[in-house]
Amino acid sequence: MNEHDSVIRVNGVVKRYADLCAIDGISFAVQGGETVGLLGPNGAGKTSTMRALAGLSPWDQGQVSVAGLDAATEGRRIRQIMGVVTQHDGLDNELNVTQNLELFGYLAGVSRTAVRRRAREVLEFFSLTGRATDDVDDLSGGMKRRLAIARALMIDPEVIVLDEPTTGLDPHSRAQVWEKLAQLKSAGVTVLMSTHYMDEAAILCDRIAIMDHGRILALAPPHALIERYAGGQVVEIRLDGAERQILRDALRASGVKWRELGALFRVLDGDTDLTALQELAGVRIERRATNLEDVFLRLTGKELDDE
């Protein structure tokens, strides 16, 4: 990769809050037009990383730049070309939908006519035109989220960072947001997003950074992550009448490692010989292709939704 192609460059960044290390030495780069996802559990450091990029919070070591601008000193110039979607919508409930958008145009120094036109465009793009003069409190959760993303587009950004764009939305609303993000990507916008959702990361991202405890554990395209860290298959065993303890004993006797996920037993190595278990009554053994979740499990030793 040519370093001049990188729009976002993060180099050896460390950020501490008192004795807690929120970002523990991370480095990565995002190329122009690329979509990169930060995938990690609560407290992994996703928000901290994005705030540093936008020049919104200071860090202790390392360099951060966007489009060649140093985030430590040129946050405003960065935010002039980079839209920021925060984890919480942060909509202004004393303003209506259009006014929320226009505010961000004016803050960016855009002229009145251009602000008006742009607000109409982004409302149209997010199918919110019918809600233009509504109070934001009257919007559904999915509409609020779309409005928060629309707000970041008021500056017509080259880069956009989205902190958990679809958390808390129903499947239909999530798909709507994905559709818009895909359109932005095809328009050439560089995207850095964080998410808790494997499917979201797999669908939208060219590359995924798996984060935990302020570190990036792996950074690669989704399929490469799966090949490298999860192997071809996993075995899952469901109880179908048998006692948990009986299955546990049988697994231990065959010398395999497993994890229990509710009623599901997941064998970590798909190539293990499980013939001994097939005789056991009341269990169902299934093999399935591995996915990002298995990568995550392998790398962090925990499920994404573990606390």
Partner: peptide, 25 residues
């Protein structure tokens, strides 16, 4: 974080938000 000189338009943008709120009510 330390930044460049004050930009008039951004300040007016903030001011304008309040003016819009006042006019709404």
């Amino acid at each position: 974080m330390n930044e460049q000189a004050l930009r008039w338009r951004s300040m007016v943008g903030v001011w304008r938000r309040h003016a819009v709120c006042l006019l709404r009510t």
